[in-house]
Amino acid sequence: MEQLSLHFLLILVSLICISSSIEPAFARRSQTRAYIEASCRTTRYPALCVQCLSDYSNATIQSPEQLAQVALSVSLYRAQYTRAYMLKVAKELESSKAGKEYYQAVKDCLEQINDSVDQLSQSIRELRRLGHEAVGDDIFWHISNVETWVSAALTDASTCLDEFPGRNMGKLKATIKGKVLNVAQVTSNALALFHRYAAKYRAAKKP
């Protein structure tokens, strides 16, 4: 009987320990999710912003710098994914007689997306320097670099579809348009979140 009681006691203690470890983790997720939702209200596409960043709610994201880094990383990932898709499409069109007339348009758009990937990569590296290396007036130089590169990436993604003819591409054009627009929208959100992060430096500089 004593052994049985001890067995139940051990089970009870184990359950209490598990519960106590789950609750702080749940609280952290809830806090991060609430922070993400509040921050995304400042973006142009808040629902998309929350959707993209909610996958990171298990991490501890509680500062504008962390949020900007994650948002730019999401934008880079979407741009890389779109580039990989368009590389595949370009190869298929190049080898297809029926697709020859669209090959150049896809290739030109692909070059724009490739530029976006490079610019977003540079902006992420620059943001890291801003957070760890920049001092004094160098801070604003780094801020300007990030804003320039992310804005350029957004412009490239937004104008990519100008390369396409206005008809006869059907489903292919719609698919490419959807992917490229997604890159443009998440990049727009990332730029807004970076502006929010950079605002603290600009506010501190004001007399």
Score class of each variant (00 low, 15 high):
103 Y>I: 00
42 T>K: 14
176 I>A: 07
176 I>Y: 07
79 A>N: 08
110 L>P: 00
133 E>C: 05
138 D>G: 07
163 E>P: 04
121 S>V: 03
114 N>Q: 13
37 E>T: 13
145 N>V: 15
110 L>Y: 05
63 S>C: 01
15 L>Y: 08
12 L>F: 14
128 R>A: 10
144 S>V: 13
77 Y>S: 13
202 R>E: 07
78 R>W: 08
76 L>P: 03
176 I>T: 06
47 A>R: 08
27 A>Y: 05
160 C>R: 05
13 V>R: 04
200 K>E: 15
2 E>H: 11
149 W>S: 09
28 R>V: 13
173 K>W: 07
10 L>S: 07
24 P>Y: 04
129 R>Q: 06
43 T>H: 05
140 F>H: 03
203 A>K: 10
173 K>F: 09
33 R>M: 14
118 D>N: 14
114 N>Y: 09
165 P>T: 00
30 S>G: 12
194 F>M: 03
157 A>M: 00
89 V>A: 09
40 C>K: 04
195 H>G: 11
63 S>G: 09
177 K>T: 14
93 L>I: 07
113 I>L: 15
116 S>I: 01
77 Y>T: 12
99 G>D: 04
17 C>M: 09
118 D>P: 02
18 I>K: 07
132 H>N: 14
25 A>Y: 14
21 S>I: 13
69 Q>L: 15
167 R>L: 14
9 L>Y: 10
202 R>I: 00
205 K>N: 11
129 R>H: 09
79 A>I: 03
158 S>V: 09
34 A>D: 13
42 T>F: 05
187 T>H: 09
59 A>E: 14
137 D>K: 14
141 W>D: 12
57 S>L: 07
116 S>M: 01
133 E>R: 08
43 T>A: 01
154 L>P: 02
149 W>N: 13
126 E>N: 00
151 S>H: 02
126 E>R: 10
194 F>C: 01
44 R>M: 10
158 S>I: 07
78 R>V: 08
182 N>Q: 15
7 H>L: 15
148 T>S: 12
129 R>F: 03
135 V>T: 15
161 L>Y: 10
109 C>K: 05
50 V>N: 00
76 L>A: 01
104 Q>M: 11
88 K>Q: 15
131 G>M: 11
80 Q>H: 08
49 C>W: 05
167 R>V: 11
51 Q>S: 14
125 R>D: 11
93 L>E: 03
79 A>Y: 05
116 S>T: 04
181 L>D: 15
100 K>G: 10
141 W>V: 15
30 S>F: 11
54 S>E: 11
77 Y>Q: 13
100 K>C: 08
200 K>M: 12
171 K>M: 14
163 E>D: 06
199 A>Q: 15
57 S>K: 11
178 G>S: 06
166 G>V: 05
2 E>W: 13
85 Y>H: 10
55 D>K: 12
101 E>W: 12
163 E>W: 02
174 A>H: 12
207 P>F: 10
178 G>M: 11
183 V>A: 04
68 A>T: 10
56 Y>A: 09
27 A>V: 13
185 Q>D: 06
